[in-house]
Design a binder for these strands. Structure first.
Lengths: 249, 249
DNA sequence: TCATTTTGTTAGAGTTCTCTAACGATGTTC
DNA sequence: GAACATCGTTAGAGAACTCTAACAAAATGA
């Protein structure tokens, strides 16, 4: 009669995903998350948060006992990272490709992040990988009379800026992340994996143009510990081999 | 004490928008819409539809008296077209740019159409206008090893196909739709308007690559009647002047 | 330490969307 | 025209999510 604490709900509701995301960000930023902070961030009443926390706790996504500090479980962190990665990816698209202001792009991403399918995400990442090796595209759009126009609010110069990076990209040789030594920093250019392995890496937050710091690397078959978007992740050898990067600083 | 039948609700709920969309499509396809058909199309029970119709009716979007045929008001049609246009635009993006199958692209569009902001829509249309004059982009993506791959389901060949069109586009002179005579057909290449006028045209369903049939054109300041996506629309002169097309057949 | 403020919880209620079940109303068939 | 099927409506209920109001617990400060 235990309510299924081990069962991953087929799909979570949007509000619940938002709470998870909020908690993740608060913990990352301040080291802790309180009911009050969550309520403020999501613009709801504390009472509502309280109830939602119970649900998340029952779903095994949040570690929470009444009036204690709030933390995500392993599963909860994974779920939060999954949403946040979608958020980042969509924001980049609206900002860098379509030329929207960071704020507007973020808003739009917020509204869509819950419904981006795995396939669409996969394809969108491929699109960014492509942009990284074909600098002409965004550049051309940026210069196109219909692209970002002078009168537009916060043009954010995505076109030219991105393309400077891309041109570099293109010239520099890329390598597998597994070649990096602890302490080195690199920027993802491509994920060569396909299928579930690719999806797994994407959901962890490994997207093109993401910075990766290598923290520890064991010999041979041991996992490679990296830091990515503020999160510490363990990559199996097979996973690390699929991540192409260019070195950065 | 009349419940505000003239007030446009600031924003409609997603289900209500879906009902509107469904009714619009049913009327367009079969000439009429019954509760049963709507229920089937949306995969809900008739009872639910019945209740929703009352709401839509109270909002002044649907013409409906108990047990009679169901039709959209002027306002309802506008709202439905607005959503459908977003649907079409997003579908095109996922299908033609990202290379998803028509079915998957449609699904994804369904989930996002309710939250696409005016600005994002505007920018996305510009992106398509840009693609129409810079054929290299989608083409290049299609040929890129990371693009649509041999093993993929329903590649739909968007890359090459679209670009053949684009190349033509590019070479042919475009003209304003107001130059067309009744009976002529053309394909939209660009909407040169900006601001509210542009938004109005987009919401009517006037997107790049949309086919337009001219039905009636009055002299001088009279409106131009066109058919677009199955809908008959009246364009004011100022509006027609902003629509660039290439002639087709 | 006692009063005050801040923080979190519970109780109760409202909204929206959905369902099933029962019931009218309309139409069809023999 | 009676029996049957189809279609639409209403009634009643439940799931999510939210709110306000009242209360409990903890922290702060004089």
């Amino acid at each position: 009669m235990f309510p299924a604490a081990n069962t991953v709900p087929a799909s979570m509701s949007e509000p619940l995903e938002d709470y998870l995301e909020t908690i993740y960000l608060l913990v990352q930023e301040h080291g802790f998350a309180r009911v009050r902070d969550i309520a403020k961030a999501r613009d709801v009443r504390a009472a509502t948060v309280s109830i939602s926390l119970r649900k998340l706790s029952e779903a095994g996504l949040v570690n929470y006992v009444r009036r204690e500090y709030i933390g995500l479980t392993e599963k909860g962190e994974e779920a939060a990272r999954r949403i946040l990665t979608r958020h980042r990816l969509l924001t980049r698209f609206f900002q860098e490709v379509l030329g929207m202001s960071p704020h507007a792009a973020g808003q739009q991403a917020c509204a869509m992040e819950h419904s981006l399918t795995d396939e669409a995400m996969d394809r969108m990442v491929r699109f960014f990988e492509f942009l990284g090796t074909c600098p002409s595209v965004v550049q051309a759009f940026g210069q196109c009379p219909m692209g970002v126009r002078p009168g537009d609010e916060a043009p954010c110069g995505a076109g030219s800026e991105t393309c400077a990076k891309c041109a570099l990209n293109h010239k520099e040789a890329s390598m597998s992340v597994s070649r990096l030594k602890p302490g080195q920093r690199a920027v993802v250019t491509q994920i060569t994996a396909t299928g579930p392995l690719r999806q797994r890496l994407l959901d962890m937050g490994i997207l093109p143009e993401t910075t990766i710091d290598v923290e520890r690397s064991g010999p041979g078959g041991h996992p490679l510990w990296i830091r990515c978007q503020g999160a510490q992740l363990a990559l199996r050898r097979a996973e690390a081999d699929c991540i192409r990067v260019r070195q950065a600083s």
